[in-house]
Design a protein around this nucleic acid. Structure first.
Lengths: 398, 398
DNA sequence: CATATTAGTCCAGTATCTAGACTTATTCAT
DNA sequence: ATGAATAAGTCTAGATACTGGACTAATATG
């Protein structure tokens, strides 16, 4: 039996149309009310009313009347307001905490990072440190006239029923959303928690290398390897929110056993630890960043072990991504995290494999690119998500 | 910049609520208006009005007042009408054409199959034969008081921008939807064309082994191997509708070259041709069904070559499905087509592999089952899709 | 047989959108 | 300069769909 649609009431129409007008402003700013009416299919009357609401919510402001030289009365254009409404993105990582404030226009208005080893630290201690960082950056934002209305937090782990498993942090079934909601100030849009790969995918989609792609796959490589899947501009989360575990796709049936219980997983050839091991770089624990830098140096020099490590990673990625492309049919594949840094050694292999496989079926070959936001993909995506929630339901600010 | 919602008008509210009421009837029939008001969150007044519309459209009918023994005035329940509104499903396959008529309740009201080799036949000839079959079954349905309002057609190929590539039929960029729309009578809901694996997935979801699964993966094995992906009760089509090409996931990097351009694809170990080859069964062309029967016989006898073929297919499926499960996070995996018939020899291997990999991350292990509709999965899914379009927009019948 | 209880209908009221007339602001031609 | 043409934005009336509560209908209970 097909599923059924949820009932809608009249006020829902208003809310939807408010979101629709705000979205049209975002995509076409600066834009007049008359043009908004064309864009949304609503009448001028309705648009005027909705714009008035959005102005009252301080989400849009009147812009300078940019005349191009038409005939009649010139329109009074509106644009997204560069404040005071803002969203906060936070990120917890093995090596650092990061924060980033975005205003409605998507501009970065504040950012901060706190280095420190979060692996093995107690979850509540990490959450307290994050709340402290959030408090400081919120104060900084307030000083420049911004008001944070929602927060999103990127974690390096899998969400299972509102609990987070993050092996690289030593977190096991931690109710992260609850802890964070309790630790952070109350906000109209509350706190959203998700996987670092998912937010990274959105970050690159909105502000980085994924712009313009309707559907794409973002590969997030650190110690572990994960993927964020975007379809039609939205995250694909799977049935229980655990989609995108690309790191545990089997790329070598006879390969090394993996901490996931399987063997020959992608993570065992393309994760940071695996790369350093194969390249013969000592695992000076806690200095992952240093290890990566050393690997890059040796690759640039042409060190054979390093090149072999990159080749193995490239081959593994090629197999895993070929499979993912056949299964998901994306526009674009973006390599993020360590794989963005190693892109020169990986992209050609991956691109060739993806182009070869299935090309005779699909006709079209997805582009393969390196991420362009570096280590910021996930925080930016998180902050963007906080903003996106405002776009989805601006009326909730009232 | 986040995407924007489309504007809604008042009449859209009416349409949505009409669909909502119809859906509630479907899921809870027989059901009174008062209960429908509770279920949908609409008022009794509104529900009464909507039910009146649905009765006028002949989608629901009054049912016998089933009293359980409450106090007050007994309700006058309504149920889905077992006619005259009906949907038609069609399927084109290498070896046969099939058709199936479903009424609103999901009951099969007519079915027919025409055997014949469609491989290499000209697309327009195949379409003409299909239209002929559709005409005959529509006449049969009309004789029992049914009126077909929409048709869906399952094809063994990939859709690329409204054109179908179906290597097993010899179809290359055939504008199937246009040909079929022209060949079939005009209907309110028109003609929907999709992949056989996608419709098979929906067929098993609604009427077969996938019932109750929110998200699942349906494996459709014939000469080729494809997958239908259902997420949250809806098909996942990917960016360009070509998602689910599981047959071309790499399961053996050193394996045989494949017609897709790659090498070591799943299809090369788990497709029907590959299975027969490995089992040493001569490829008596055109008798695929006979080949499969022979393979089953030899497996039952314990023939070593046949067992080896099944083991290789099982191992390949295990790798491909493990990857798919990690990427998509479904509830359930359903093996369809030839793999349903071979399930006894495949399910244990696949189930063990899927349970092993990623279990430490996700906690939950998807169930692995054989399809239960046999060769009918795809036609049933197609017919169900025709019906589903009525459920999605009942007002379009007016 | 009266009362309680629940189903379904009727009717007035509210919120939202639409349509078209009207006002305002600007350009272009005379 | 001045008036016609043009386009933006506002105002008013009207249509539509839902809500809420009063009302009628049908049945069980005591």
């Amino acid at each position: 039996m097909p599923e059924n649609a949820r009932a809608t009431h009249l006020d829902a129409v208003r809310e939807r149309n408010l979101a629709s007008v705000l979205g049209a402003v975002a995509h076409h700013q600066p834009v007049t009310r008359a043009r908004l009416a064309e864009l949304t299919g609503l009448t001028k009357t309705t648009v005027t009313g909705q714009v008035a609401v959005l102005e009252r919510l301080r989400l849009v402001v009147g812009a300078d009347p940019v005349r191009v030289g038409g005939r009649g009365r010139p329109g009074a254009p509106v644009s997204l307001a560069p404040g005071p409404v803002a969203g906060l993105g936070l990120e917890v990582n093995g090596q650092y905490l990061a924060a980033c404030v975005l205003d409605m226009t998507g501009a970065v208005r504040a950012r901060a990072t706190v280095a420190g080893d979060n692996r093995g630290r107690r979850p509540d201690a990490t959450v307290a440190a994050l709340a402290d960082l959030a408090g400081r950056i919120a104060a900084e934002a307030a000083a420049s006239g911004l008001d944070i209305v929602g927060t999103a937090v990127a974690l390096p782990g899998v969400l299972v029923e509102d609990r987070v498993n993050a092996p690289n942090l030593g977190w096991d079934a931690v109710p992260a959303a609850d802890l964070l909601t309790a630790a952070l100030p109350v906000q109209p849009f509350g706190v959203t928690v998700d996987n670092e790969a998912n937010f990274g995918a959105l970050g690159e989609l909105w502000y980085g290398a994924g712009q313009g792609a309707g559907s794409y796959l973002y590969l997030s490589g650190e110690t572990g390897v994960g993927a964020g899947i975007v379809v039609g501009g939205k995250l694909f989360r799977g049935a229980h929110g655990a989609a995108g575990e690309l790191g545990h796709v089997v790329v070598d049936p006879d390969g090394r056993p993996c901490r996931c219980g399987g063997a020959g997983c992608l993570e065992q050839v393309a994760g940071l630890d695996a790369l350093l091991r194969t390249a013969g770089i000592p695992d000076a624990s806690g200095t992952a960043a240093a290890g990566l830098a050393e690997l890059e140096r040796r690759l640039a020099e042409g060190d054979p072990a390093a090149l072999q490590a990159a080749a193995a990673a490239g081959a593994g990625l090629a197999i895993a991504l070929t499979g993912a492309v056949n299964l998901l049919d994306p526009d674009t594949v973006v390599l993020g995290g360590i794989h963005a840094r190693l892109a020169p050694w990986l992209v050609p292999t991956v691109e060739a494999a993806v182009a070869r496989s299935g090309s005779r079926l699909r006709g079209r070959t997805p582009a393969v690119r390196a991420a362009s936001l570096g280590t910021e993909s996930a925080v930016r995506g998180a902050a963007g998500t906080a903003i996106a929630r405002i776009f989805a339901d601006p009326g909730a600010l009232a």
